[in-house]
C-alpha cells in the first residue's frame, strides 16, 4: 500500500496558446505492485500526461502547473541531469513502436548494455551475465544477444524493449500503448509478462491504452481521460462494471464484445456535450 507517485494538478498547454488546456488539472496516485491504466480516445491527453511525468514534453509544450512527486521528490523543476539519472534507472519506459525505438545498427545485447553501463556501471562478465538473465526473463534465448533488431519478430523486439526498460529494476514502469502494434497472440504474451514482472519486482506500472479489453486484463486501477481531463477513476472492476460517467459508458459501448451479442454504439458527442452542459 505504499504510494510511489503522486501527480497533482498536472496542466499542459502549447507554448503559444496558454488557454488551450491539452492536459487539464490531472491528479492521481500510483502504488508499488499495482497497475494503473490511463484510457481515453485518441487525443485525450494520455501520452502528454506520461511525457509530463518523465519530463519529456516537447519544446512547443509547457507544463503550466502541477507536481510530479516520485518517492517523495517533486520531479518538476529538477535539473535535466537528475531527471536523466532517474529515467532508465528508477523509472523505466516503453513506447508503442518497437522498430523506431531500437537502433537498427546495434545488436540487441549492445543496446541493453548501454543502460546497465550508464546506470549501474556494470562491465565484463557481470554485464554479460546480466544481459543474458534479462533476455531470458522476457523469454528470449540468451544466445540472441548478438542479433540485430531486424532479425527479430515484432513481438521479440517489443520484448527487447521491455528487457531494456526493466534492466535497472525500476520502481515504476511507464508503458505507452506497448502492445497496440502487435498481434493478439503476441499481445497476450506481453501482457502476461508485464503482469508477472509487476508482481515479482513489486513494480508500479502506468499503462496507457485505448483498449478496454487490455484494461480488463492488466489494470488494478483505471483513470479515464476525455479532452484533457480525468472524467472518472477507480478500481478496475468498478469502472468496467459500474461506470459512473456518461463518457466512460459511451467509450465502453464502442468496444466490440467477443460474443458479438451487444450492438456496437459509436460515441454520440452531441449528446455528451449536452450532458456536460447540464
Amino acid at each position: 500500500m505504499t504510494e510511489l507517485l503522486r501527480i497533482e494538478g498536472l496542466t499542459v498547454t502549447p507554448q503559444n496558446a496558454p488557454d488551450k488546456l491539452l492536459v487539464n488539472n490531472v491528479s492521481f496516485t500510483l502504488e508499488s505492485g499495482k497497475t494503473t491504466c490511463v484510457v481515453g480516445e485518441s487525443g485525450s491527453g494520455k501520452s502528454l500526461t506520461a511525457l509530463s511525468v518523465m519530463g519529456l514534453l516537447s519544446s512547443q509544450l509547457r507544463l503550466a502547473q502541477g507536481k510530479v512527486i516520485f518517492q517523495g521528490q517533486d520531479l518538476v523543476g529538477i535539473s535535466n541531469d537528475e531527471l536523466r539519472k532517474i529515467r532508465g534507472g528508477r523509472i523505466g519506459m516503453i513506447f508503442q513502436e518497437p522498430m523506431t525505438s531500437l537502433n537498427p545498427v546495434l545488436t540487441i545485447g549492445k543496446q541493453i548494455s548501454e543502460t546497465l553501463i550508464v546506470h549501474q556501471g556494470l562491465r565484463g562478465q557481470t554485464l554479460k551475465a546480466r544481459i543474458a538473465a534479462l533476455l531470458e526473463q522476457v523469454g528470449i534465448p540468451a544466445g540472441r544477444a548478438n542479433s540485430y533488431p531486424d532479425e527479430l519478430s515484432g513481438g521479440q523486439r517489443q520484448r527487447v524493449m521491455i528487457a531494456m526498460s526493466i534492466a535497472c529494476e525500476p520502481a515504476m514502469l511507464i508503458a505507452d500503448e506497448p502492445t497496440t502494434a502487435l498481434d493478439v497472440t503476441v499481445q497476450a504474451q506481453i501482457l502476461a509478462l508485464l503482469n508477472e514482472l509487476k508482481t515479482r519486482m513489486n513494480m508500479a506500472m502506468l499503462f496507457i491504452t485505448h483498449d478496454f479489453g487490455v484494461v480488463a486484463d492488466i489494470a488494478d486501477d483505471v483513470v479515464v481521460m476525455f479532452r484533457g481531463e480525468i472524467v472518472e477513476s477507480g478500481p478496475v472492476a468498478e469502472v468496467l462494471h459500474n461506470p459512473q460517467h456518461p463518457y466512460t459508458r459511451a467509450l465502453l459501448a464502442c468496444v466490440p464484445d467477443a460474443e458479438g451479442k451487444r450492438p456496437l454504439k459509436p460515441i454520440d458527442y452531441a449528446w455528451l456535450n449536452e450532458e456536460a452542459a447540464a
Partner: peptide, 12 residues
C-alpha cells in the same frame, strides 16, 4: 487465437 482476445472473461 480466441483465448488471446483481450478482456475476454472480464468484459463478458
Amino acid at each position: 487465437l480466441l483465448q488471446s482476445i483481450p478482456g475476454r472473461r472480464a468484459l463478458a
